[in-house]
Design a protein around this nucleic acid. Sequence first.
DNA 1: TTTT
DNA 2: TTTT
Lengths: 139, 139, 139, 139
Amino acid sequence: MLNRAVLVGRLTRDPELRYTANGTAVATFTLAVDRRFGRGQGEREADFIPIVTWQKLAETCAHYLRKGRLVAVEGRIQTRSYENNEGRRVYVTEVVADNVQFLDGARGQAPADGGQPPAVDPFQDEATPIDLSDDELPF
Amino acid sequence: MLNRAVLVGRLTRDPELRYTANGTAVATFTLAVDRRFGRGQGEREADFIPIVTWQKLAETCAHYLRKGRLVAVEGRIQTRSYENNEGRRVYVTEVVADNVQFLDGARGQAPADGGQPPAVDPFQDEATPIDLSDDELPF
Amino acid sequence: MLNRAVLVGRLTRDPELRYTANGTAVATFTLAVDRRFGRGQGEREADFIPIVTWQKLAETCAHYLRKGRLVAVEGRIQTRSYENNEGRRVYVTEVVADNVQFLDGARGQAPADGGQPPAVDPFQDEATPIDLSDDELPF
Amino acid sequence: MLNRAVLVGRLTRDPELRYTANGTAVATFTLAVDRRFGRGQGEREADFIPIVTWQKLAETCAHYLRKGRLVAVEGRIQTRSYENNEGRRVYVTEVVADNVQFLDGARGQAPADGGQPPAVDPFQDEATPIDLSDDELPF
DNA sequence: TTTT
DNA sequence: TTTT
């Protein structure tokens, strides 16, 4: 009915880019979101939140983001389960991002994949949300 | 740095109320958040999102909410891991709610626990977020 | 860069439906969002937040919503200014909604405009956000 | 019932710090939130969103923030009206922030007010929301 | 298994 | 393991 998450944090590692069986790009990364607490707010901990992006946004993230970069992420919380290689059902909760903003201003840095920029303008504001529910995630 | 989730959905079952070693109330439940998709939006699926609440808000939720009730939940996404009874490390992602709004208007219904209302006014707007990071979750 | 508002509240009156010079539908209404405060949370006040919706979502809102209905609204905060009929510049801040969820379950009620349902399925989840920035708002 | 705004943008000028009749600190500033649109996302515009903060958070913002700084702001949308100096009723919509994150990493920069840091640790995560509804805003 |  |  309504499902929205907004996060600001840093990538714990470079994004991973894969493709589904029918060729749709999927990028995944983990966001470390710091949290302060305790009287005086001196203590610090982080939540590590798994992010998934699709299509052009996935390719943009894979191309421009890398470990340590600061980003804002908007999306919805998704739950899914899959059978792991030991035959166990594993439950996953992650954020499916439809908007990723680069907050570091590091456009001049070398891209994470060392390669060519994707054909589309990477600095777009919004992903085009298309029905991908039939896609089998490759992980 | 910034971590906010906002959800509207229905409880999949009555909340569970427990207490930590040092007596803090914790209530947990799962929210079914419907999602429509496909051309014509005819298809429907749900995300099932685990919710945790603490203290007075936990007792209020346990007392007034039950399976099927419509609520709005605000909180932050948290990740944690624990050792399960087979000695495996299990990773959990859930929403720690600091605001739960009852949207059904079913205040006159029998409470989920059939008992006495909690001492505090249940229709408060915001939980008082206190540092509970040392608390060992009983699950 | 990132601009998201999420609201749950009730319409203060029936939505108003208008059309821009080039025929785009625009619906406006005001949302009363209750807030509790004070020790004991006994006191209650409301914020009255102006909402704008466009296109199909506008027609759906105008057709199905009416004064008093409970809705969840997602969108971005927008500021604009215009010259009023006394020649003064007036500044307006409002929420441009791209998702409106009907929370009352009053699908069987008479529609606000007493007429035919719009051709599209009204119970869609997401508006199709199209560039309307050149449209001159008729108010 | 539920009222949450999340913004990332830049200050259009240094914050203004004032005090209410009974000595409560209030800081105000405007956030420019860029938006991209059009095919290719080449066009760019901004929403200019008025922000209000109270108490310690107000003093922290006034002390550390200045024009151009990038921040994330969380809060609720508030509407109020007041009589201006011409005797007209003016309606204002603004975001009352309870969390402001500094995203520039410019902790070493000279503070906006050129003075002493406030006594409290400025890098706290959350404002302590206290009932200030009786306070008369000095503007 | 985690980022600054 | 899921709600209307």
